[in-house]
Amino acid sequence: MNAYLAVAAVLFVCGVMCMATKRNGIGVLMGVELVLNGANINFVAFSKYGLLGLDGQIFSLFVIVLAAAEAAVALAIALNFYNNHLTIDVDQASELKN
């Protein structure tokens, strides 16, 4: 089980690093996907080798669907942002300030 958890942890850290360092909006969303999949691996590993049972598998199935839904909305918003600002750089999203 530890090997699976290690892979999941590596995915999680990669995802968080990606979210923190990428300046491209799509890149940040890719980081989010990595984090979600890291959590999925955790769930499936705990389900197979731990005490979580079927709950873990169901959890990861739901997360796969939700990740797709969330990505669809996020990409639509990113596209809308591009239409209005002609860039997808999150640092350019700084017009709303005090």
Binding site: G15, V16, M19, G25, V28, L29, G31, V32, V35, L36, A39, V63, E70, V73, A74, I77, A78, N80, F81, N83, N84, H85, V90, A93, E95, L96
Partner: peptide, 19 residues
């Protein structure tokens, strides 16, 4: 559109960490 982009990026990140 800017507000929504910020909201969705922070929100998706927070949801991932929470999961």
């Amino acid at each position: 559109s800017e507000a929504a982009l910020k909201y969705v990026i922070y929100g998706a990140g927070a949801a991932g960490v929470m999961l």
